[in-house]
Each structure stands twice: as C-alpha cells, then as structure tokens.
Amino acid sequence: MRHDPVLDVSKLPTYGFGHRSPMWWGTLGFCTLEGMGFAIAIGAYLYLSFLNPQWPLSVPPPDLIWASLLTILLIISIIPNYLTQKFGEEENLAKVRVYLVVMSVLGFVAIGIRFLEFGRLHVKWDQNAYGSLLWALLGLHTTHIITDVVDTLVLTALMFTRHGHGKRFSDVGDNAFYWNFVVLSWLPMYALLYWGPRL
C-alpha cells in the first residue's frame, strides 16, 4: 500500500520524564502488582487475627524501637529521594551523583536496621501462625528494600561512568519513584504490625 507522509517525528525528543516515559509506566505496573501482593499478605494477617481469639498468639508484639527508627529514616529519606529525582530532571550530573550516594547509604542503613529487627523479634517463623506471618510480611518488605538499594547502586555506578547522560536521568527518576513505593508500602505495615496489637 502506498504511503502518505502526514507527520514528521524527527524533531521529537529521544526521552522524557515521569509519565511521558514508558519506563515510568512499567515501574508503576510493577509497584501495582507488588502492592497487590502486600495487600493480599496483609489480608491474610488480618484474616488470621480475626479468626484467633488472641492475637498476637501467645507472644508480645514486636518492640517499637527499631521499626520506629526505620520508619523515621524512611520518611526522612523521601526528601533526598525527591531531590535526586529533581536534579535528574534538571540533568544536573554533579548533584545527581551526590544524592545517589546519599540514597545508597540510607538504603544500607535501612537494611542494617531491618536485620537488627529480625534478630530481636519475640517469635520465630516456625513457632505459630502469627510468627509465620510476621516474618513473611517483614521478609516481603525487606526484599523490596534490597531490590531498590541494588538498583540504586547500579544507577550510581552508571552515573559515575561515561554512561551518565541522556536517558539515564529519566532512569534516576523512575528509581526514585520505586523508592517512594518502598516507603509508602511500609507505613501501613508498620501501623498494622507494631501498633495494631497495642490498640
């Protein structure tokens, strides 16, 4: 069939930020399905807590200290995370590098606190169903922290090499977006696992 050129796209940009970028939508898709996974796991926890007359089952709830510290850290991390994204959109390589290092360090601290937390829980996963779900929920969230920290490290390495230009700045924004998901998905879990049993 003959072609009738009606549109010239040669002047279009080669990448875009936020919702203009397919990667942003891909990240949103994965956040949605992982968020659904969190919701289902939380649903299972609530279901068993509703069925059992006593909840948590024969053990005290987890201590507040480490999880609260982690929560504060995660909430604070949103600020450097926002700045990383903002400087990415401005394509300010020097500042993007600085803030990616900051985010990497914060990520490592978060993982460290989480592992301290695992060692201080009052129940093991094989003790009863409460312990099983507590460990499962914390484990699920921990995999998300680790995933984003590894992604941040790779991106940091990219931005410190000759690859730090163009579309990578858009990737910086998408990585920051995923971190927001990691933080936001933690908040209902924190309320449920740590404050729920104390109400």
């Binding site: 299972a44 279901y47 068993l48 069925l51 059992n52 089952l57 996963w125 094989d126 003790q127 009863n128 169903a129 409460y130 312990g131 099983s132 779900l133 460990w135 499962a136």
Partner: peptide, 22 residues
C-alpha cells in the same frame, strides 16, 4: 503458593489450624 512452600519447607504454620493458621 509461597505460603504453601514456606509451610512445607521451613515449618511455618500459615495454613495449620493447630498453631493458629487456617
């Protein structure tokens, strides 16, 4: 299916009524 594997492999009790599961 992950919960099922956990119950089978590392002894969690998510589906075990005897230990508070269902």
């Amino acid at each position: 299916s992950t919960f099922l594997i956990l119950d089978r492999l590392i002894g969690t009790h998510i589906f075990n009524p005897a230990e508070g599961g269902d």
